[in-house]
Amino acid sequence: MITVRGLSFEYPGKRALDDVTFTLGRGSITALVGPNGAGKTTLMRCLCGLERPLAGEVVVDGIDVIEEPRASHEKLGYLSDFFGLYAELTVAQCLRYAAAANHVPGDAGPRVAATAARLQLADRLDQAAGTLSRGLRQRLAIGQAIIHAPRVLVLDEPASGLDPEARHALAALFRELQADGMTLLVSSHILAELEEYATDMLILRDGRLVEFRQLGPAHAGQRQLVLRVAGDPAAALALLRARSGIDGIEAQSREIAFTLEGGDEAQAALLAALVTANVGLVAFTEAAPDLQASYLRSMRGADLVS
């Protein structure tokens, strides 16, 4: 859905993006992470055609963003980290304008109503945007970015300043949009929040792509599992290594993480084998993606390389 090739961007005396190349698949939610000044916002602005890079290519749904920025905007939605709203317009007018400005065909009324309902703003349609709370303003801004049903939604720190409940609602909304086939690229410093919905992770540092990888299992037939043993993990490790369909084994102290090929039956068979082998099994469960640990591992790896 998004293809970036050899993207380079400079500020005077500083290379903000250095030969960045990646491809984001349709329907993915990619967490864009990295330390401050890594080039995340610059990358997002280049993807949206708001900045012209020094070199490279950005293609969104078959449209070259640098050559045809206006045409690409029909396919793109963008929420800046410091967004503004037309304070004197009502919520309905803001949404109606966003729909018309992004060439939504026909009467925008039903689209406005549907978007407002999706963002729980239906009862606020006649309220001036300037009188909304922080959370509601955020929802309206997202509503403006998605009203034209873009193929790609780019969000820069969308959850900053939101309370936990609003963040949870935002995560649910992102999953909903993903289920509709939208591709999302979300930057945030709060990795725990990204864990709730991200399928991929793209790590930038000093303008360079440190790592781009899928989170969790590589495909639907795989599952990520973790087990903990009471004593020495050697027996459990030996059993796992001997069995087929098991990959990516990572042991840390008495905890072992791995991926298992197959469904519930394969998992049940493995559990039975571990119990029968008496490896001292204490816990055996599906692993929640630990973005924080994964991010830190990648950054440490990058440190070693550099």
Partner: peptide, 14 residues
Amino acid sequence: RDRTWDQQRMSALD
């Protein structure tokens, strides 16, 4: 001033 310029630049209006 109102930080809405990026939204305008991101629209599909010619």
